[in-house]
């Protein structure tokens, strides 16, 4: 950091003539960035304001409420199963975060750091499997799950099963991370007589903290937004909904007239905790996303 500062100072002095032009272009950029931020944040600001509107419950062509109040939040908890949906989603998210992290890490670690017969073949097969659209299999999964009683009111365990079972196929990002840990570490430990399990447990896992957190974070966040599977598997039984399906049902044509502001309130209640969690762990998320893209 210090070095950079020292390098910078003489340069700006040398190009005094450039600064005027530079200042104009910087001003333009500031304006553009400000506009961008406003556009990006505005909808969330609007949804927040609209959730406090009390005079009407349907859609309105304006943002700022004429009568403020917590009516929508109160109605959300008294008139709908929102608490149930919230609990469902939280339960799903916690279970998914734990199971999925174990599965993804086992898969990616093995494919990245162990060499065995059929490894390349396995990766190619998964690549091909990944090309099938995810819910082509929805029909048969639904039938099988409903045979086991894991749909409708029992949708929560069913959804956990669906989210976790195939999560091994999403190993790419964490494999990319494991790939960057030098192989020589393993080799040194092997020479010292460590078994492969010991290397995994005592050597690599402590080094992999960022990717573990990234995996937990993404696994935890996904169920909050999932709509397709949740809707199909809960199959119009309100007690099996997650928040996405529940809030979506409020915006349907038949109910939007009375529950639009309630939808806004629900959206705020879902967004706030997730956003706080995300902000705390943002560093790991950014690392994972950027790393994942570079390594393909």
């Amino acid at each position: 950091m210090n070095n950079k500062e020292i390098n910078k100072t003489p340069k700006t002095k040398k190009h005094m003539g450039m600064t005027a032009k530079g200042r104009i272009s910087n001003t333009i950029i500031y304006i553009l960035l400000a506009v961008i931020i406003i556009i990006w944040v505005l909808p969330f600001f609007c949804i927040f304001l609209e959730s406090f509107r009390c005079e009407t419950q349907g859609m309105a062509g304006y943002v700022i409420p004429k009568k403020w109040g917590f009516d929508n939040y109160v109605r959300l908890f008294t008139e709908t199963d929102f608490l149930r949906w919230y609990g469902n989603t939280l339960l799903i998210a916690v279970c998914t975060a734990i199971l999925q992290t174990i599965i993804v890490l086992a898969m990616s670690y093995t494919l990245s750091r162990l060499r065995f017969k059929g490894r390349k073949l396995l990766m190619n097969v998964m690549l091909v499997l990944g090309m099938f659209p995810g819910f082509l299999t929805l029909i048969v999964l639904y039938k099988v799950l409903s045979g086991m009683g894991l749909t409708g009111p029992g949708a929560v365990p069913g959804l956990i099963l669906v989210y976790c079972a195939s999560s091994g196929m999403g190993y790419y990002v964490s494999k990319g991370y494991f790939d960057t840990i030098p192989k020589s570490l393993d080799e040194a430990a092997r020479v010292d007589g460590a078994t492969r399990f010991q290397i995994f447990k005592k050597l690599i896992m402590p080094l992999a903290k960022p990717i573990v957190i990234y995996t937990i974070l993404t696994a935890f966040m996904a169920p909050w937004g999932d709509f397709i599977f949740a809707r199909y598997i809960s199959h119009a039984v309100s007690s099996g909904y997650n928040v996405a399906v529940g809030l979506w049902s409020m915006t349907e044509r038949t109910s939007i007239g009375t529950s639009y502001t309630m939808f806004c309130a629900g959206g705020v209640l879902v967004a706030i905790p997730i956003t706080i969690l995300f902000m705390i762990l943002q560093k790991y998320y950014v690392e994972g996303v950027t790393g994942g893209a570079v390594k393909g």
């Binding site: 062509g61 937004g225 996405a244 809030l247 967004a271 998320y285």
Partner: peptide, 27 residues
């Protein structure tokens, strides 16, 4: 930070809300 913030909010909230913003009687 502001841009990344928008990633955190579950997509169904933002998408459904924006969809209603652009509706015939929307914002």
């Amino acid at each position: 930070g502001f841009l990344v913030l928008t990633i955190a909010i579950p997509q169904f909230v933002s998408l459904l809300y924006v969809s209603k913003m652009f509706a015939d009687n929307g914002l």
